[in-house]
Design a binder for these strands. Structure first.
Length: 508
DNA sequence: CTATGGCACGGATT
DNA sequence: AATCCGTGCCATAG
């Protein structure tokens, strides 16, 4: 980011300064944007300079030397990593608000209430004005999972309109991010998502598509119980193929659209929304896996921020009675600029280290996450640990594989073991008991107690051994067990509909 | 008797 | 100081 250096007018460090720095660090992109917006509106001393979009590189690929403008970006190249704060952002300026009063960029922490607005904004262009109230009605009737549990006909009756019209609106909503919202059942949501994926098919996908579709329509309950053998029989494919199918489904589809993540979920700390905008984007240069990693820290406002030089000059000729308040404005503005600068600096340093430490994780996935604590990182960065906490809190990162995760996840102590556990169970021939699993994990170098394995299993949404149907030779077991599976669902109600919607363990 | 989930305690983390 | 997390012990289901 390009910030005018105003240090010569800056007052010495004050508690106000420290307080503001910390507060800013805590804010995520959306919140910071609001903050800056109000600040800009209220403080005449603060000025936003418009920067043109980089003509050649757009933004993320703004690597030094590629285009002249990008030379301004503070870029640090730490071996294979490039970290920078992007002056170009995808945040839309708010002037294109085409909608009712209610959008001013809400606090992103206001969780489910945020979803309706989010979707409304997406569909607004295609939505007929007279259908708005219907859309609003639907969106506010969604449950926590993003499903529409009330009968459509009720909505139609309420608005005195045809069912078809309501359905049309619903279809619009379903196609908006997060896809599938507004479906009546998880099953329907899955189908919608599948069909949306079908618009952009890969060869592998085409192969799976008909099977996945049929499996979801006919055997949703079997899927949820992971009764792979039975599904295999009905679909006429082998059990391993069903496994692959199930993996595909759980990685790409989400039965509860409003709940978090695509891809692997299984994470008690993130049953949150996924429609948050990332604050940081990590990608490979040119999308090619061999290139250096580019870490882009998004600035939530276009261009750069600085203290208005005209305002500064004007201060000299300020009328007596105004002088004081003008000076206050000036101070406030330069303080803000300075603090934002500091925030960016911290974020850059943080991400540099993060990427250095977790490179394997970023590239290769969950299994490679190194357990690291905020405290350790704080020592390396030579900052107070609370600084790390603040910087990490509530921010989201987009990984090269397009998945959006919370920055918190980088500090997950057990993720590595959990994925090891998942793999173990994935490959098991016959269901292994928790004790067996614990032994295996220990021999692999993960010291865990049996009790802990059980907890991890639960977190991953994996059924207890006796309800798992192992590989092929478990067939006999399976034929005796179908109802057991059912009964288990009452007891182990923790298992989500498709087994991968995640649940918080009852914790106290 | 064995496998698992619940509760609760203590140490680590934030 | 407040929370989170791994574990041990115990009750219960199979």
């Amino acid at each position: 980011m390009i910030l005018q250096s105003q240090s010569h007018v800056l007052r010495p460090l004050t508690t106000a300064h420290l307080a503001q720095t910390m507060t800013l660090l805590e804010l995520n992109g959306e919140q910071l944007r609001q903050k800056i917006e109000t600040e800009l509106a209220e403080n005449p001393a603060l000025e936003q300079i418009d920067e043109n979009r980089c003509p050649t590189c757009g933004r993320a690929s703004a690597v030094p030397g590629v285009c002249p403008l990008c030379n301004h970006i503070p870029v640090q190249n730490i071996d294979q990593t490039i970290v920078f704060v992007s002056p170009f952002t995808d945040f839309k300026p708010t002037d294109q608000v085409d909608d009712d009063e209610d959008y001013t960029g809400e606090d992103i922490n206001a969780i489910p209430e945020d979803l309706p607005t989010f979707i409304l904004r997406q569909i607004a262009p295609e939505l007929a004005v007279e259908d708005r109230s219907i859309a609003a009605h639907i969106l506010t009737s969604l449950d926590d999972d993003g499903l529409l549990r009330i009968p459509i006909i009720e909505i139609a009756r309420y608005h005195h309109c045809s069912l078809a019209r309501v359905e049309k609106v619903i279809r619009l909503i379903q196609c908006a991010e997060p896809i599938g919202t507004g479906s009546a059942t998880p099953q329907e949501a899955l189908l919608i998502q599948l069909d949306v994926l079908a618009e952009n098919p890969t060869p592998a996908f085409l192969r799976l598509y008909p099977l996945a579709r049929q499996a979801i329509i006919d055997d949703i309950d079997l899927l949820s119980r992971r009764a792979y053998n039975e599904i295999g029989r009905k679909l006429g494919i082998t059990t391993p193929e069903v496994q692959r199918l199930a993996t595909f489904i759980s990685e790409n589809l989400n039965p509860y659209p409003a709940r978090a993540h695509w891809g692997d979920i299984h994470h008690s700390s993130e049953p949150r929304h996924n429609y948050i905008t990332p604050d940081i984007i990590i990608s490979h240069l040119n999308e090619s896996p061999d290139s250096p990693i580019v870490v882009e820290i998004l600035s939530p406002y276009a261009g750069a921020l600085r203290v208005n030089p005209l305002f500064r000059e004007a201060l000299d000729q300020a009328p007596q009675e105004k002088a004081e308040s003008w000076q206050a404005h000036l101070d406030q503005a330069s303080l803000l600029v300075k603090c934002i600068q500091q925030r960016n600096n911290t974020m850059v340093r943080l991400m540099q280290n993060m990427v250095r430490i977790q490179r394997e994780f970023i590239i290769h996935g969950d299994a490679y996450l190194k357990p690291i604590t905020r405290a350790k990182l704080a020592i390396e960065l030579d900052v107070h640990e609370s600084t790390i906490s603040r910087a990490v809190a509530g921010k989201a990162v987009q990984l090269p594989n397009r998945r959006i995760i919370l920055l918190d996840k980088f500090f997950d102590r057990s993720l590595q073991i959990r994925t090891a556990l998942r793999d173990l169970i994935e490959e098991e021939i016959r269901p292994l008991s928790d004790t067996d699993l614990a032994k295996k994990l220990i021999s692999m170098g993960y010291p865990v107690a049996r009790r802990t394995v059980a907890k991890y299993r639960a977190m991953e949404g994996i059924l207890p051994a006796r309800f798992r149907l192992g590989g092929t030779q478990a067939n006999q077991t399976q034929s005796i067990r179908p109802e057991l599976g059912l009964r288990s669902s009452t007891r182990a109600a923790t298992t989500a509909v498709t087994g991968y919607g995640k649940h918080n363990l009852p914790r106290k």
